[in-house]
């Protein structure tokens, strides 16, 4: 996820010489090689935590952010107006940043979760995790992966997602894993803006025109079956919570519900009467069980990286 162009200083007489770049070719695009988001950060495991379990937990938090970020970024140039286009892209960027840190943390905790690439591949671990895993290795909840509907659908999903994520990250700031605690502390600040944004738009749409209300209610009804899974405990989450490094989402379910009730009541919207989407043979997104939509999302997100496993980005 680190992007860079070829170093133009290697091309004598190129049109990008001094006139455009001055004497410093490092100003070409953003950087000229990979930047480790955890460069120099102490990634030693805390006592009493299984490396694989911690890495898997990091993937859960990372994949939620990565998949949500990708769906939000699909709005780029297509949002109802320029301000919302920029806003949704900003939320997507924050989540992408959280995903990068968490994927890097997963790889540092247990390198065996990182897919193998050909010898000599310059692809860094966070990119290998994002672009070279199959859908069944993704640990995100299914709420994040279902296709975008209209703006009302996106706001309803972002409200549920950011409310739960903020509550989780607030607790995670107390993690015994210093990296997770630090990522969470940054994430709380960012996600506060995301939740307020979603909440304000939910209220605006619900109290706007008949059409805007109809749409946000329809969007909420579409994503509501996936709400329960967001706060359902997976054994890995129970294990990291018991070890003091992670958060069991079930422990924040009540406070998430209180915040949502606040938004619904001021908006005059009833909770949808639709049942939760069941797992398949007891498996959910956290187990790697996904809807078909994730495969399509990943096909688009991963195609270029997979075509060039030796590529330098």
């Amino acid at each position: 996820m680190s992007h860079s162009a070829p170093d133009p200083s290697h091309e004598d007489g190129s049109p990008y010489d001094d006139a455009l770049l001055g004497s410093d070719a490092s100003h070409w695009a953003f950087g000229t090689d990979f930047e480790d988001p955890l460069a120099g950060v102490d990634t030693t495991l805390p006592d009493g935590v299984d490396a694989r379990t911690l890495a898997t937990y990091c993937l859960m938090l990372a994949d939620d952010a990565l998949v949500a970020s990708h769906r939000l970024s699909e709005w780029c140039s297509r949002a109802p107006d320029l301000e919302e286009d920029i806003a949704l892209a900003n939320v997507a960027l924050d989540l992408l940043g959280q995903a990068r840190l968490l994927l890097a943390r997963a790889a540092a905790a247990d390198a065996s979760v990182v897919p193998a690439l050909p010898d000599g591949s310059p692809v860094p671990p966070e990119d290998a995790l994002a672009f070279f895993r199959e859908a069944h290795d993704f640990r995100n909840v299914r709420l994040g992966e279902v296709p975008n509907g209209d703006f009302g659908h996106t706001i309803a999903r972002l409200l549920l997602f950011s409310t739960a994520r903020l509550a989780l990250l607030e607790r995670l700031t107390a993690s015994r894993d210093h990296v997770l605690a630090a990522v969470a502390a940054k994430g709380v600040k960012e996600t506060t803006y995301h939740r307020d944004y979603a909440g304000r738009w939910f209220l605006t749409l619900a109290q706007g025109t008949d059409e805007s209300r109809r749409r946000v209610e329809a969007g909420l009804a579409e994503v509501w079956p996936l709400y329960g899974e967001l706060l359902r405990t997976h054994p890995v989450e129970a294990e990291v919570a018991a070890a003091g490094v992670g958060v069991d989402p079930a422990t924040v379910a009540d406070e998430v519900d209180v915040v949502l009730e606040q938004v619904f009541s001021v908006s005059g919207v009833q909770r949808p009467g639709v049942p939760p989407l069941a797992g398949v043979t007891g498996r959910y997104g956290r187990d790697g069980l996904h809807t078909e939509a994730l495969s399509r999302l990943l096909a688009e997100m991963q195609v270029v990286a997979r075509a060039h496993p030796m590529g330098q980005w």
């Binding site: 680190s2 860079s4 410093d24 490092s26 100003h27 953003f30 950087g31 000229t32 930047e35 988001p37 120099g40 960027l93 924050d94 989540l95 992408l96 940043g97 959280q98 990068r100 840190l101 990522v183 940054k186 994430g187 960012e190």
Partner: peptide, 21 residues
Amino acid sequence: AITPTYSGCPAMATMRDDLVH
């Protein structure tokens, strides 16, 4: 030592390169 303003701050790599140079 530098710290990102926001988690997704895309300017970190450029900051690093500029410091090194």
